[in-house]
Amino acid sequence: MSSRRDASPGRIRIIGGSLRNSRLDVPDSPGLRPTAERVRETLFNWLAPMIEGARCLDLCAGTGALGIEALSRGAAGVQFVERDARAAQALRDNLMRLKASAGQVSVQDAAQFLQGAPQQNELVFLDPPFALQLWSPLARQLEQGGWLTARAWIYVESPRHGPPELPAHWQLHREGHAGEVRFALYRRALPLS
């Protein structure tokens, strides 16, 4: 059982779908924490009924393992956002090698990216560097900026203790723990007007 710290640098593998067993090169970059295989497997078991054809946003993408796993399992497209130029280039290289043309990479800070013109997404991966404490501000931007469909799914990865403050209408669907990491899937449920 590997933790995110154990997986970097080196290689990690895609665990399901058309790209199953493909390896992703992981650069040696400070703070990069690829989501553990066991966590990705659990998450994508949860997402199995809704991933086909979904439009996805992978904020603070890092290695892009979550978004590439989504593409492998039939997502219509994934917008990857990564501020570290080295990590973003490694992600582009992996997408090119895997011929995953439905993945687009933006080298940009997530908060700046969310100030741009929105495209609604059915699924968002929100896994910022833990030290930066960005969950709440990014969640507000996702809500206020028009980035989510009315019933979007939002995956949030955070430290095990002290879950982040998120919008009240993001209803917890499922959650789990792996070491010091809490991973949770939320469903956006807007109140009826």
Rank of each mutant, 00 (worst) to 15 (best):
S29V: 15
Q133K: 15
L95V: 12
R151L: 02
A90S: 13
G53C: 06
P167E: 15
L132E: 14
P129A: 13
E122T: 01
S18Q: 14
L71S: 08
R187I: 08
M50Q: 15
S2D: 09
L32R: 07
C60D: 03
A100I: 02
R33D: 03
E165L: 15
M1S: 13
T42H: 05
F113C: 08
L126P: 01
P9L: 00
L95M: 09
G145R: 03
I51A: 08
R86D: 11
Q120P: 11
V124L: 00
P191Y: 03
E157G: 04
R4W: 00
A150F: 01
W147H: 10
G67F: 12
L192I: 03
D25Q: 14
L166C: 12
L71R: 03
G62W: 08
H161W: 13
A100C: 09
L192D: 09
E157N: 03
L114E: 10
G67V: 07
Q171N: 08
P49F: 04
E180T: 07
P27M: 09
L66T: 03
A7D: 02
R97Q: 09
R151F: 00
T149N: 06
G64C: 11
R182Y: 02
G146C: 02
R86F: 04
P159I: 06
A139V: 08
G53N: 04
R40I: 04
S106H: 15
Q144E: 15
V181P: 00
E41V: 04
S2R: 12
R140G: 09
H169D: 14
V156W: 04
G146I: 03
R23E: 13
D84H: 12
G77K: 14
P118L: 04
N21H: 14
A75Q: 07
G103H: 06
A189L: 13
A189I: 14
G53S: 06
A184Q: 07
F183A: 00
R13L: 00
V26F: 05
F130H: 13
E175P: 01
H177K: 12
S193Q: 11
R187V: 11
C56R: 09
G64P: 05
L126M: 02
I154Q: 02
H177A: 10
A76H: 05
Y186P: 01
A70R: 10
V39S: 08
I154L: 11
N94H: 12
A61E: 07
Q144S: 10
R97P: 04
R92C: 13
V39A: 09
E143L: 12
E143N: 11
L148K: 09
V124S: 01
C56Q: 09
D28S: 12
R5A: 13
R20F: 02
L138S: 05
L190Q: 05
S8M: 00
